[in-house]
Design a protein around this nucleic acid. Structure first.
Length: 289
DNA sequence: CGCCTTTGACCAGCGC
DNA sequence: GCGCTGGTCAAAGGCG
């Protein structure tokens, strides 16, 4: 990372239309843009965003084509006061080739601690993760910056809100959600950017341990049932019928923030709302400096 | 009745 | 050691 913070990343320089956004509360970085060439740029990040997505404010992406989710940004609070440039440098470290990053998962030494069972417990104990005296561990995290009027974006999974906190330096509270699947430990945080209230920052943590969407009342729902209408990336102008993420076979897949889906997600989402739009990938590619 | 959100309290980690 | 902040728990209430 040395030196990365004081000179522009070639990729960043090329992507002049990108707007660096720093999420101070979590110390995460995002690149947001309205330029359609982002798809090309995103591909370099390992994200496959459909080029034609019907407008910057209602964009979807095909997460199913994503490579295995890589760890992320979001260093701990300890870095809160680090200058943005320095943080950007840390992001470079947050790559597979730099497992030293705190957010790394599989090789996180903390997983060997007793608390590992708490944060990554066996299925039968999922849901009751935190006990007094047990240490928290960080699952791999990554975030999306989306432009949406609603905070909670449909992503194909069902979530249960378990907390809300006021965020320092932000007038908007942060909401904490947990996957309702008892075997799934995935969490996500949702908050609005204090810089741009129209921007929703969704941070996923962990990997879904189940294949499809959640389990709506009445039993498990298959993907086909959950997504009766399949919209291709190029035809997803309708906000009512989100693009169906193509889930890989077989499961489980890496944490996949299935783009806009409504089936097993929240009970409902107002038409035109709650869909992942204007998605911006976290910068987690090693820029190979 | 079951699931969900809300909300205050509690805990852990970190900086000073 | 203290204070701050993020993250989580769990009870209570609401809703379909």
């Amino acid at each position: 990372m040395s030196g990365e913070g004081d000179k522009p990343d070639p990729d960043f320089a090329a992507a002049s239309a990108w707007d660096l956004r720093h999420h101070p509360a979590d110390n995460s970085f995002f690149y947001a843009t309205d330029d359609y060439k982002e798809s090309t740029i995103l591909s370099e990040f390992g994200w496959n965003i459909p080029p034609d997505s019907g407008g910057a404010s209602n964009r979807h992406c095909d997460f199913a084509d994503f490579p295995p989710i890589e760890p992320v940004l979001a260093p701990s609070r300890a870095d809160d006061r680090v200058a943005p440039d320095a943080i950007a440098s840390r992001m470079v470290e947050a790559s597979p080739s730099n497992p030293s990053v705190s957010s790394s998962s599989s090789d996180d030494p903390q997983e060997k601690s007793p608390s590992a069972a708490a944060a990554n417990p066996p299925p039968e104990s999922a849901g009751k993760t935190k006990k007094k005296g047990q240490k928290r561990i960080r699952q791999p995290r990554f975030a999306f910056v989306t432009k949406s009027e609603v905070d909670h974006l449909e992503d194909g999974y069902r979530w249960r809100k378990y907390g809300q906190k006021a965020v320092k330096n932000s007038p908007f509270p942060r909401s904490y959600y947990r996957c309702t699947n008892s075997k799934c430990m995935v969490k996500k945080r949702i908050e609005r950017s204090f810089e741009d209230p129209s921007v929703v920052i969704t941070t996923y943590e962990g990997q879904h341990s189940h294949y499809s969407v959640g389990y709506p009342r009445g039993g498990m729902v298959t993907q086909e049932a959950a997504f009766p209408t399949y919209l291709t990336p190029s035809s997803n102008n309708s906000p009512h019928l989100p693009y169906h993420p193509r889930l890989p076979h077989p499961p489980p897949s890496p944490l996949q923030p299935a783009a806009g889906s409504s089936g097993g997600g929240e009970p409902r989402a107002p038409p035109g709302e709650g869909l992942l739009g204007d998605i911006v990938p976290p910068r987690m590619r090693n820029n190979g400096s």
